[in-house]
Design a protein around this nucleic acid. Structure first.
Length: 266
DNA sequence: ATGGTGGCACCGCCA
């Protein structure tokens, strides 16, 4: 192994057009190599690809009007780009590729915007649970846990009580209930390590999302950890740091989510 | 406290 440092991040932008300047400034400042974006909220013909390419970055994307939409912004050209879960449905919620990380090494990347699910018991909630099953089938069929693979994005699931403020109050929320925790665990059991939690075991107040409607949520630690960087073991063992950029949530006109980052020594 | 904010599209829906 060499001493190559390589950084990946994930960010629910809540409109890439509104957040474009923040994203480009953040990438320049942090020197992150690959950024997975969710909720771009734009059709492909209106996606600001030129502005991103003018900044010297590569970008691939798949969106739709108003809602969802995913993108991958990278310093090297992504290879083998694919969209959706394979049935032509929901292509604006999954984008994946292979990234050259240098020295001839490759890392596969799967970026998902998991359906939020509306509320427990709804058809949309059943669809969310089914979505995790379909995703597990994708990993079963097209990847192997002993290969370097990252699954990142807005999973719309709080993994553990420590990952949301006042967990007893939120039990039964569409993002925090036994069924979605089990669905997330079922996919992770395939062979993923949650690298932020790996790097910060038992650390409270580690959040990636704060409700716009709360009055002072970041300072008062009223957040949720629903954006994740999952790595297969061959990558997780080379993870040297992982963190959440809480400061970015205090930016002017911020997204309600913030950037989650992992650094690897490859 | 059953509100509150924000983005996009349109006069409401979704998060």
């Amino acid at each position: 192994m060499t001493d190559t440092r390589w950084k990946v991040a994930t960010f629910n932008a809540n409109s890439i057009r509104v957040r474009l300047t923040q994203i480009l400034d953040w990438l320049e400042r942090t020197d992150v190599d690959v950024l997975a974006v969710q909720e771009t909220k734009v059709q492909d013909e209106s996606f600001p690809a030129e502005e991103i390419r003018e900044a010297g970055l590569h970008v691939v994307y798949r969106g739709q009007k108003s809602r969802a939409g995913v993108a991958i912004i990278s310093r090297t050209e992504p290879e083998e780009v694919r969209y959706g879960l394979g049935d032509g449905e929901d292509e604006a919620r999954l984008i994946r590729c292979v990234i050259d990380v240098g020295q001839g090494a490759k890392v596969s990347l799967v970026n998902t915007y998991v359906p939020q699910g509306r509320e427990m018991g709804s058809d949309e909630f059943q669809y969310k649970l089914r979505w995790f099953e379909r995703l597990r089938e994708l990993f079963d069929g097209e990847y192997a846990p002993d290969e370097p693979l990252l699954w990142v994005g807005d999973m719309n699931v709080v993994p553990e009580p420590i990952d949301v403020f006042e967990p007893e109050r939120h039990e039964g929320h569409v993002d925090y209930n036994p069924e979605v925790r089990e669905a997330l665990a079922m996919v992770c059991d395939w062979g993923f390590v949650d690298v932020v939690r790996q790097q910060h075991p038992d650390e409270p107040n580690l959040y990636s999302y704060w409700d716009y409607r709360a009055k002072n949520p970041v300072a008062e630690h009223k957040g949720w950890r629903v954006d994740h960087i999952m790595a297969t073991e061959p990558l997780a063992e080379h993870c040297v740091a992982a963190w959440i950029d809480t400061e970015a949530r205090l930016a002017e006109r911020p997204s309600d989510h913030t950037f989650v980052v992992a650094e690897f020594e490859l």
